[in-house]
């Protein structure tokens, strides 16, 4: 191995927290003996925000084709940085775009790809831990290849300390890419909520929420707590809330600090998606619902009475 390269993903002109966590994962793998560098594609200004972390270099590539994410120019750009850096390991957050870039890049690098990992183990070569079977098991997997691409699950690794120094910024001129999958239009969603895969707090609703109006209460609560709204498949299938909120085996796997399950029974397919939350609070009228036996704090009651009260209580804490 000869270096670690981290993709710093930006959203609306800001660094994503998962990219800082990827730097931390890189430092952990590098163990002070392998340098960690970062790659910023698209936004030159952001390089300075990244350079305060313990990095060897910050590579910046910006051009007309990399103003917003598109698979082909971003793969080309990252691969350029990869070749310049001489690195052998690439790390990025397992975000929607991280998943897109990492796979194409791994193929180009002829690397192995380890996705959505939750831990690294350096005791005997490089191995990683990742949930498999939608979280029903954890697999320890060795990576026996000269090159590897790793994506990390958001909210699992810490963020790195700032150094007080600034890492050198290296500007790379982009090549011109052949863009055959071209983004024609981006329709931005009205609300600016955090994607549930990255949210630290998720207020999630199921059949018990009863309809789209019920979800308004969950949205208010999530907003107050700075979190996002999740849902069971039943709530999604009923059309109460869009699919992108679905948590579970055929929805998204989430790992927030706090998951508040409201009117959700906790079926195996749902639990698979949120079982690794650090804390689970469940609100359910039925004390026998499976979720009540898995939650850290289970409240027996009608969510329409309990959630507003909980919202007010948590609001007090968070304002402090």
């Amino acid at each position: 191995m000869s270096g670690i390269l981290v993709w710093v993903e930006t959203k609306n002109g800001r660094l994503r927290k998962s990219s800082l966590e990827a730097i931390q994962a890189g430092l952990q793998i590098g163990k002070n003996s392998e340098p960690v560098s970062a790659v910023v594609i698209g936004d030159r200004v952001l390089a300075d925000h990244v350079a305060i972390y313990p990095l060897k270099n910050v590579f910046v590539i910006s051009g007309d084709q990399t103003k917003t994410y598109q698979s082909e120019p971003f793969t080309d750009a990252f691969f350029q940085a990869f070749e310049v850096s001489g690195a052998s390991t690439v790390i990025m957050g397992a975000t929607a775009l991280g998943r897109d870039l990492s796979a194409r890049l791994a193929a180009r690098m002829d690397a192995v790809l380890a996705t959505d990992i939750i831990s690294v183990d350096m005791s005997d070569g490089l191995s990683i831990l990742k949930p498999v079977y939608s979280g029903k098991l954890i697999a320890k997997i060795s990576l026996d290849a000269p090159r590897q691409v790793i994506t990390i699950r958001p909210n699992v690794f810490d963020t790195p300390e700032e150094t007080g120094n600034t890492a050198p910024v290296v500007v790379i001129e982009p090549v011109s890419s052949d863009i055959r999958a071209q983004v024609r239009e981006a329709v931005t969603a009205a609300q600016d909520a955090i994607d549930i895969t990255e949210a630290e707090i998720i207020v999630s609703g199921g059949r018990g929420v009863g309809g789209p109006d019920g979800f308004k209460l969950l949205e208010e609560t999530a907003k107050l707590l700075g979190g996002s709204v999740g849902a069971s498949r039943t709530a999604v299938d009923e059309g109460w809330i869009p699919y992108k909120h679905q948590v579970g085996q055929t929805g998204k796997v989430v790992s927030p600090i706090l998951y508040i399950a409201c009117g959700i029974s906790g079926a195996i397919q749902h639990f698979a998606g949120m079982g690794s939350a650090r804390f689970i609070i469940a609100i359910n009228t039925d004390p026998e619902a499976p979720i009540m036996k898995k939650a850290d704090f289970a409240i027996v009651g009608n969510l329409f009475n309990v959630l507003p009260a909980l919202r007010d209580e948590l609001g007090k804490i968070i304002r402090k």
Partner: peptide, 19 residues
């Protein structure tokens, strides 16, 4: 180039407080 070394069960979630 990748091998499963071991599979394990995630830490079981046991019932917490019920109020």
């Amino acid at each position: 180039r990748m091998r499963y070394i071991a599979l394990s069960y995630p830490p079981a979630r046991s019932a917490g407080r019920l109020v």
